[in-house]
Design a protein around this nucleic acid. Sequence first.
DNA 1: ATACATCTGTACCGTGCAGTACAAAGTATC
DNA 2: GATACTTTGTACTGCACGGTACAGATGTAT
Lengths: 202, 202
Amino acid sequence: MKIQRRARTPGRPRAFDADRALDRALEVFWRKGYEGASLSDLTRAMRINRPSLYAAFGDKQGLFRKALDRYAEGPASYTRDALNEATARAAVERLLYGTADAMSDVRNPRGCLLVQGALACGDEASTVKRELIARREAGERALCQRLKRAKLEGDLPPDSDPVVLARYVATVNQGIAVQAASGASRAALRKIAEIALRAWPK
Amino acid sequence: MKIQRRARTPGRPRAFDADRALDRALEVFWRKGYEGASLSDLTRAMRINRPSLYAAFGDKQGLFRKALDRYAEGPASYTRDALNEATARAAVERLLYGTADAMSDVRNPRGCLLVQGALACGDEASTVKRELIARREAGERALCQRLKRAKLEGDLPPDSDPVVLARYVATVNQGIAVQAASGASRAALRKIAEIALRAWPK
DNA sequence: ATACATCTGTACCGTGCAGTACAAAGTATC
DNA sequence: GATACTTTGTACTGCACGGTACAGATGTAT
């Protein structure tokens, strides 16, 4: 989702790259969570001043939502790719190992923005919390749809329950996110994924 | 850990029950996290005023730590009990189902204080974050010790790795905590535990 | 060249935060 | 009853928060 200035508009041109600034805001939210990230933290990291932030992204919640979109299309894009694997097993493998890798990527903060962005928070951030819940659930539903298809295709046993399996995988992913936030190594996270896959129906 | 006033001391007696007040503080921290819980939230819930809070519990961090201790001995005490089960399998079963039940207990906030208390936060709360990491790791280590003993007793296969298994169980537990914070039902959480146990070595 | 529209930077707004000073109130000892 | 000692309640402190007013800067369109 490019934030682009309308071409051919008079007025002083924007002196910063909005996408680059958004990336920096994303990193701050990722590291500190929605509540923990102050506007001063954000403007410092984005290297713009406050009115520029408000003009380009709206208020703090607006900026956070745009950061969420960017997160989904960037660091978390593997989750969508994983669902395109040929088999349910391959999709879930790629999902779990992809999470292990993504959450221990040294170029990014540890853990998952969708989990640690606002897990428990004050009243003011509760709409943000609900937004994150909705996005996590959407991911789980997408996986569930993929597993239902797999069941129809005979790719999953007839007695398996896609709803429960999708919830299990989502749960392990979220658990891995917490482990990563605690500082667990990539190797440790991958071993978790390996064990978790032993529960997968044959 | 009773907070008791020294007997036989002159002076105006405390007008509130410190343990009861601590329980109420625990609930606020549990629901809103460390950063999200303001002192006004806390004093309102505890039904005491600010100087009484500071006199009895120190500052906000001190209160939080005491709430953590109370959490461990109260709502989370099942984690210690679980390790006393006769077999590793029974211990892990009780741990996972216990978590599913505890985190969907209608008498308490949803989710796990050790997870959502301060997963990502601003700089000021980073020592609290580290404290929570340490406590989660301590729980994982305790389980690991139990599994090592089980291996020695022939209760776990010789090729199993207690470190990895303990990490897996801790991860599922933390994932269940996130699911609970998202509003998942008790039945859903128990099914997750059931699936997760399929990965357990025979 | 001039008018106009937008962006930038500074300096500010009201509010809520964690933490505290201080006087009044209550209990034990003498 | 006087004194010593602690808790209570009110009112306050300094500070950081999210958000904005406004003036000057910088571009495009005419």
